[in-house]
Amino acid sequence: MSNSDVGGRTVPSRDELFTLLADEPRREVLRVVAERSPNGIDPNDLAYEIAAVTNDKPLAAVTDDEHQRTRIDCQHRVLPALKDAGVIADQNGTLVATDALPDATVDTIRTGNAHASSAELDAVFSGLADERRRTMLAVLVDQIDTVSVDALARAVAQLETSTDDVTAETVDNVRVSLVHVHLPMLADAGLVEYDTETGRVIAADNAALCASWLEFESDREKMEQEPEVLESTVPL
């Protein structure tokens, strides 16, 4: 669900934002358009630049076939998703970046990440494209030792309900989702180290995970406001 409008445009939710970024062509299009804004870039020129990046060759070496394939992908798949999310706008045939993305996110897209491959970034952003998984990571990144799944489930439940008085049923429901859905996905993305035998987990030292991607999350702000919740439940 998108957030409230900014400057007349709908701001994508965190789920929508990270889903968008879990795709190399969309990241590259955002990067190029952001770099060219506010003047913008012609869609045809954009296709040449994206083709050069995705085929790892100089702009002048891009073939007509590579340009055509990229142009079609941009026209039918990449640009519609970015326009629908409100992060790119078409102004009289020129593509420009809007102000819908946080500055920290735009800066990250522009600078890229020299320590992660495109596939790794795809996995990281897919892992972040869920509020509960982001809450889990926000809890884990502040821990220096492994955490039991039970303690993590309780901390997540408390943060999601904004109270430390959560029922055993609520915690159990969260725990089931962590064990069967979210922890395996975060482990596959290289964002956590999860030992299924001991039932303990710790945030992985993943260079692709930029701390600023979690800092503007409302869950993390809630954690900072209620440190006693974490201190009493997580280090177990």
Score class of each variant (00 low, 15 high):
Ser2Ile: 00
Asn3Thr: 12
Gly8Met: 06
Arg9Val: 14
Thr10Lys: 04
Thr10Gln: 06
Val11Ile: 14
Arg14Leu: 14
Glu16Val: 08
Glu16Gly: 07
Leu17Gln: 14
Leu17Thr: 15
Phe18Ser: 04
Asp23Ile: 01
Asp23Cys: 04
Glu24Cys: 00
Arg26Val: 06
Ala34His: 09
Ser37Trp: 10
Gly40Cys: 09
Asn44Phe: 03
Ile50Asp: 02
Val53Cys: 02
Asp56Arg: 05
Asp64Trp: 03
Asp65Glu: 13
His67Phe: 14
Gln68Arg: 13
Ile72Tyr: 09
Asp73Gln: 12
Gln75Val: 00
Gln75Asp: 12
His76Cys: 00
Ala81Val: 07
Gly86Pro: 05
Asp90Gly: 06
Gln91Leu: 07
Gln91Val: 11
Gln91Ala: 06
Gly93Cys: 04
Thr94Asn: 01
Val96Met: 05
Val96Ile: 13
Val96Pro: 00
Ala97Met: 09
Ala100Pro: 10
Leu101Ser: 03
Pro102Glu: 11
Thr105Gln: 13
Thr105Trp: 14
Asp107Gly: 04
Thr108Ile: 05
Thr108Ser: 11
Arg110Pro: 01
Thr111Cys: 03
Gly112Arg: 12
Gly112Asp: 05
Ala114Gly: 12
His115Asp: 10
Ala116Ser: 15
Ser117Asp: 10
Ser118Arg: 02
Glu120Ser: 13
Val124Pro: 01
Phe125Ala: 07
Gly127Thr: 02
Ala129Arg: 07
Ala129Phe: 09
Asp130Gln: 12
Arg133Leu: 07
Met136Asn: 07
Val139Phe: 06
Leu140Glu: 01
Val147His: 08
Ser148Trp: 00
Ser148Thr: 15
Ser148Met: 07
Val149Ile: 14
Asp150Thr: 13
Asp150Glu: 12
Ala153Tyr: 01
Arg154Ser: 01
Val156Ser: 04
Gln158His: 08
Leu159Cys: 12
Glu160Trp: 11
Thr163Leu: 04
Asp164Gln: 06
Thr167Gln: 09
Thr167Val: 04
Val171Tyr: 00
Asp172Arg: 10
Asn173Pro: 10
Val174Thr: 14
Arg175Asn: 12
Val176Glu: 11
Leu178Thr: 05
His182Met: 03
Leu186Glu: 07
Ala187Trp: 05
Asp188Gly: 08
Ala189Ser: 09
Val192Phe: 07
Glu193Tyr: 03
Glu193Gln: 13
Tyr194Thr: 07
Tyr194Glu: 05
Glu197Met: 06
Ala203Gly: 11
Ala203Gln: 08
Leu209Ala: 01
Leu209Asp: 04
Cys210Ser: 10
Cys210Trp: 10
Ala211Leu: 15
Trp213Phe: 11
Leu214Gln: 01
Leu214Ala: 04
Glu215Phe: 08
Ser218Tyr: 02
Ser218Asn: 11
Glu221Thr: 14
Glu226Tyr: 14
Pro227Trp: 01
Glu228Ile: 02
Glu228Gln: 12
Val229Cys: 06
Val229Trp: 15
Thr233Lys: 02
Leu236Tyr: 06
